[in-house]
Design a protein around this nucleic acid. Sequence first.
RNA 1: GCCUGGGUAACUCAGCCUGGAUAGAGUGCCAGCCUUCUAAGCUGGAAGUCGCAGGUUCAAAUCCUGUCCCGGGCGCCA
Length: 566
Amino acid sequence: MDETVLEIVKKAVKKLSINIDDPRLKSIIEIPKDRSKGDFAFPCFSLAGTMKMPPHEIAVSLREAIGNPPADFKDVVVEGAYLNFFIDRKKLAINLIKEIEGKKNNFGRSEAGNGKNTMIEFSQPNTHKAFHVGHIRGTAIGESLARISEFSGEKVIRANYSGDTGMHIAKWIWCYRKYHSREKLKNSEKWIASIYVEAVKKIPKLKKAQDEVEEINRKLDSKEDPEINKLWEKTRALSIESWKKIYQELDTHFDVHFFESDVEKRGREIANELIKRKIAKVDEGATIIKFEDENLGTWVLLRKDGTVLYSAKDLALAEMKFNKYKIEKSIYIIGAEQSLHIAQLFRTLELMKFKNADKCRFIPVSEVRLPTGKMSSRTGDNILYSEFMEEMVKFAKKGIKARDKKVSKPELEKRALAISIAAIKYSMLKQSSNRNIIFSKEESFNFEGNTGPYLLYSYARASSIINKSKFLGELLQNFDLDEKEAEMVLKMKEFKNIIEKAHEDLNPSVLANYSYELSKIFNEFYHSSEVLGSQKENFRLHLVKAFSQVLENSLYLLGIKILERM
RNA sequence: GCCUGGGUAACUCAGCCUGGAUAGAGUGCCAGCCUUCUAAGCUGGAAGUCGCAGGUUCAAAUCCUGUCCCGGGCGCCA
């Protein structure tokens, strides 16, 4: 529709025999914040220079040049320097509702991506460490971007990447053998995390500990000690098992799960190749790259004892992603504190003349902090996923029981979990990824206002109307749109543009905020307009159904499961 | 010191890329609304020198420069 406006303006400008073919004209067309001003607006300020006329006069002459309102438009009005376009809202409502009813779950889907293979790497928990609420952020963003990309016509490969080797494992094993060897190994996230925290605390205090850990790390690397190998294998498997439930609850899955141990060997080879190619060098025993660009500093690939660092492993991983999976785009969703590391990685790929270096994109995700400061799996200053969810579900159950006394037990469990996941995921998605989130428990237990549960509630309200209605006939066209109905239609109309924007910017928060705005308008409508039994029942039912579909699609793209009842 | 993200209402944020019509939400606070499709809702109100100072422009929260404050990073953790 905005393209149509552009055409009209262009034609009018031409009629005034002024030669402007400014490509910027398109971006000038805006949607007024105050919808009573019009559905689209063309501000004439920018033409003032070329046309040598005051903006208001330009608007007036353009209006004259346009003549009768063109098809699909009700009116074109001059206000100050603005040319305001009013579309035929009823016509729009009919067409849009029909389109949504026809396309259903596919409304908003596009083929723009041409089936391009895209790999999205996200979540990346390390074995032998905590999975805390901070991990939810990257996981939620990754899953949502995967869905948005798929909806935009790409073929997405979801990838997880876990550190299952390196110093933190050595520390864990050291601590377990020294203090917990009589305990049975468990697949409990909490237990696993606690041993790591204990190790971090104890090692600096004990004289020989650091050397002992180094020794274990070397043995892990060389695989020479069968007992350590076995312990590593077992505990690694338990860690991985502990994530299964978490990913199931978060409604995400991975097509491939890479581990550092898979790329360690190749990482070392690459590091050595880079020495031969004079890209890297040995300095104080370690293998490093010194970047010409001083802002990229120095990157260490191999430690002086020869063990492989995650830098070299990431090089090997990048290579493997493209070679083995034939991808055309590689997205890294990683903590912002690794920005330098990623810049070094991408720059090295370029230096290596890796042909896909330009197809890698990095989405930095900032920290989830506690009011008291940084959340850390090293120090144990964090909120574990499992503990938090347990509390949240308990809280959600209270609310459900209060409004639905007859709810069955399995239904209660299902709803409480869905509400909790919606709450936590939405709180992570609605905020821009480059901002820190100060995570406060109290606030996450608030289900009112701009929250996940509000969205689910809006959907449930719509469902309730639909379920109570009788057979829904064809959309009759004997209605007049009121303000609230028109607002809903116009908002739903924006859906496609929003997806496009979210996809382009790789930013789900655009879609999250849209979902909220859409729900808000629906709740206003719900309050002011009776549906069942009203004169306009037929139209309003179709409208509610269309809304419910758009919100469902929107929530799907955020990775949030809907509920018919709350 | 250098690099990087942020500074918008009491609090948490959107808007900034792509400059335009009185700067928007939510929470909290104040005042209302449940015999009517779920009150996890709706309506109204109070609340803002858009960190600060310059500059560009007809027009700056938005672009440029400087500066202050906070977070993160800067060679053998990931």
